[in-house]
Design a protein around this nucleic acid. Sequence first.
DNA 1: ACAGCTGTTCTACTCGATGGAACAAACTAT
DNA 2: ATAGTTTGTTCCATCGAGTAGAACAGCTGT
Lengths: 253, 253
Amino acid sequence: MTENAPHRVETSRKTIRVLDALREHGSSSVTFLARELEMNKSTVHNHLSTLEAEKFVVRDGTDYELSLRLLGFGGYVQHRHPLYQVAKREVHRLASQTGELANLMVEEYGQGVYLASEQGERAVDLDIYPGLRRPLHAIGLGKAILAHLSPERVDDIIDEHGLPAETDQTITDRAELDAQLATVRDRGYAVDNEELIRGLRCVGAPIIAKDGTVLGAISVSQPVSRMNNERFTDEVPDIVQSAANVIELHANH
Amino acid sequence: MTENAPHRVETSRKTIRVLDALREHGSSSVTFLARELEMNKSTVHNHLSTLEAEKFVVRDGTDYELSLRLLGFGGYVQHRHPLYQVAKREVHRLASQTGELANLMVEEYGQGVYLASEQGERAVDLDIYPGLRRPLHAIGLGKAILAHLSPERVDDIIDEHGLPAETDQTITDRAELDAQLATVRDRGYAVDNEELIRGLRCVGAPIIAKDGTVLGAISVSQPVSRMNNERFTDEVPDIVQSAANVIELHANH
DNA sequence: ACAGCTGTTCTACTCGATGGAACAAACTAT
DNA sequence: ATAGTTTGTTCCATCGAGTAGAACAGCTGT
């Protein structure tokens, strides 16, 4: 038992570690996972057998991989999420209206989680999928959310996750971040300028509930080549903000 | 240890049972789950603490519910699924072209699993989401798949799952099913006529790989009121089949 | 104030997860 | 072919850890 941790089930943590490893490495064999996780071969085998019996993994010959049963859990969580239900259509509309990539994000455990991601006709292909987690400070979506969390909450989050640099444009200075968050609050939307991925610009608007708490954020991402400064500072922000407003109306019944 | 089951990790099964219960009942308290699962209160508490530490569940005051971390696994599984990658755009196109509900299904463990589900402008709202499982025999999508599995495989599946009646239109007779599957093979698409849900018609076409194995099926569902017999037997099948053909082309590189 | 709920903590017991060795099956290389 | 290496799987004894039950604390309503 580590430190002051209460009574935890160590065995189940091992099972979760196996699942995590399968997600990180894709289809894997018993011995590979045993080496990777520094667990005994027979232990890994037992856990995989259990997961297979429970249909959480499928075996492809000698390798195991995550099964669609996990999609059942994931789809369920997404489907029943209150913000997803009201925002789904707007994300869709935003993607087809702009032809670009539209995303919906919420905060959980101090990280940004994509709740929905929809590609328009000419959208960039970014390997973004629902459930993917990204640091909040490095993307427009995340800054839109951070700007409307309580200062204590922002402190906690940065204490836990820091301000890692994703590209050379990422904000890594706390004062700089605070300044940007103030700007976001003023003008109502956030941007990121190749902060997570080089060549990509993104405009995000917060979704605020009637009691003032931030529910999430919605954004449009497009290559710098297709977003000149005018679109970047005028047109796109308007579109994204009005989508956020529509969602706010639905969210507040 | 039950029967001839090899060495399984019983503790992890309990954790999985907790997750299942949370999915079935939604947000739940410790004592509720303990009663439901016939486990000791403290045992449930330990498992939930573990799941919370691993961020698989979030607590909302005294209740626990499934977290977005599960969406991470689910989204990953969906995103990396080979059929999803090639079929995604066609499902999208089918939904906007018809304005109705378009679905993509694959078979896993003898059940039909929705891989994608997209609503067009006037589509019915069916509580279908990616990862949801349905019996193969009761839906057009499922019959499109069954028709192209090997006879032994079909036998195995029916041995395991039977032919439960979802509505009074569901096929529950094996001979009747075989006859329908033969028809599906002949004309290239499958239908269901209020077999899963009353008032809903569905046309599904199989997606076949170049080696003859069935990869999945794609469908359009709409209310009987909007699908007269002509559309049901001519127009819609054509649209769905051509979408399936496009996917087959992409799947075969 | 008291009874009846919760969730949580503690502890002793014993069940079962674990790691190591032994096994079989599949491949490689000589 | 045969020997050698690597795989997945099974077996088994040990001891670590999950479990159940009781005790505690915090809350609600009458």
